[in-house]
């Protein structure tokens, strides 16, 4: 429990730092008054606006006001869309989360078994082939993979759509493409594109870890105990392999979420990435600030989840956490 509380404290700290960065962005990039009243407003109007916005208050008070608003999901009004930033983000968030989740699911679901298999069958030709393929997967730029997939499956074969989200079903503010055939078809190419690099990475790491574990003393001792190969490979080796692999998968999930921008651009996927690209082009500072905080929140939550998962798989962490608190 102490372990969990400590981690929560760290999470809050990280979020405060992110809020500070995004607040600074908000406060010092461009002049918010200019943005709101326009270039032609009189000096008196500007002063009145400044006072109304609280821009004359001390820095610290302004910062805490920002945090207070952020906690209520209030990040102000988008310069470009003239709508509340939170509403814009809420609208786009499900698309990106779905894309990231599905691509990580593909990458993990294939990457871990393939990595383990290639480690256990090192000499096999298929293992060599997969290893070479994974190198390509790591090296190829994502947009190139996306374009190649579009060319093959949309343009030549005409099997799958090359852009958009297809038909979505809404539940309140949440919209999902997973419940309609066209939505699922639309998800295939972007999520594969986003997942290829992760798949290759996870496979290589799982393979390397598995090989490492198979050389460990306790595996040799398990052999000397006469355990069945299946028990040695899966009950002992695989579980020990998963500890570092789970961490990496968690961290990569944050990356996938944050860097879906490229894939969303290639596939015109109506998610956060696309929104942010446009926000950057128009210097839509409130939107950018909110996006920053959101990404930080995602990373923090993922880290927290990974840590908790660690406690669940590895009994040593639990002990270390308790000792760390006692010390």
């Amino acid at each position: 429990m102490g372990f969990v509380l400590g981690r929560l404290g760290q999470t809050v700290l990280v979020l405060l730092v992110a809020a500070f960065v995004s607040f600074s962005l908000f406060r010092y990039v461009g002049d918010p008054v200019n943005n709101m009243v326009g270039q032609t407003a009189s000096l008196a109007d500007r002063e009145a606006m400044r006072a109304a916005l609280g821009l004359d208050d001390p820095f610290v008070i302004q910062f805490f006001r920002f945090v207070g608003h952020a906690l209520q999901g209030d990040f102000g009004i988008s310069y470009r869309y003239g709508q509340p930033v939170s509403a814009l983000i809420a609208e786009r968030f499900p698309a990106t989360l779905e894309l990231a989740l599905i691509s990580m699911l593909i990458a993990t679901g294939l990457g871990v078994p393939l990595g383990v298999w290639t480690a256990l069958h090192r000499g096999h030709w298929l293992s060599q082939l997969l290893l070479a393929a994974s190198l390509i997967g790591v090296a190829l730029p994502t947009f190139l993979i996306g374009i190649a997939l579009i060319l093959t499956f949309s343009v030549w074969l005409g099997w799958l759509p090359s852009f958009g989200r297809g038909q979505v079903v809404s539940f309140g503010w949440w919209s999902t493409g997973l419940l309609s055939w066209s939505g699922i078809r639309a998800l295939v190419l972007p999520s594969v594109t986003l997942g290829v690099f992760q798949l290759a990475l996870i496979m290589r790491l799982a393979r390397a870890e598995m090989l490492e574990v198979m050389r460990a003393d306790f595996i040799r001792f398990a052999r000397a105990r006469g355990l069945r190969p299946r028990a040695i490979e899966y009950r002992h080796a695989l579980r020990n392999t998963l500890v570092p692999v789970v961490t990496m998968i968690g961290l990569q999930f944050g990356n996938v979420f944050a860097f879906s921008i490229i894939v969303e651009t290639v596939f015109q996927w109506p998610g956060l990435g696309l929104l942010v690209i446009q926000a950057i082009q128009f210097a839509d500072v409130p939107l950018l600030a909110a996006y920053l905080v959101l990404i930080a929140l995602c990373f923090a939550l993922i880290n927290l989840a990974v840590d908790l998962l660690y406690v669940a798989i590895d009994p040593r962490v639990k002990a270390a956490g308790l000792v760390g608190r006692a010390a």
Binding site: D217, F218, F221, A224, R225, H236, R239, V243, P315
Partner: peptide, 15 residues
């Protein structure tokens, strides 16, 4: 049966 040198690493840490 076998007994190896290092008891610290002979046992599976997760079991």
């Amino acid at each position: 049966a076998a007994v190896f040198q290092d008891p610290l690493t002979s046992l599976d840490p997760l079991m």
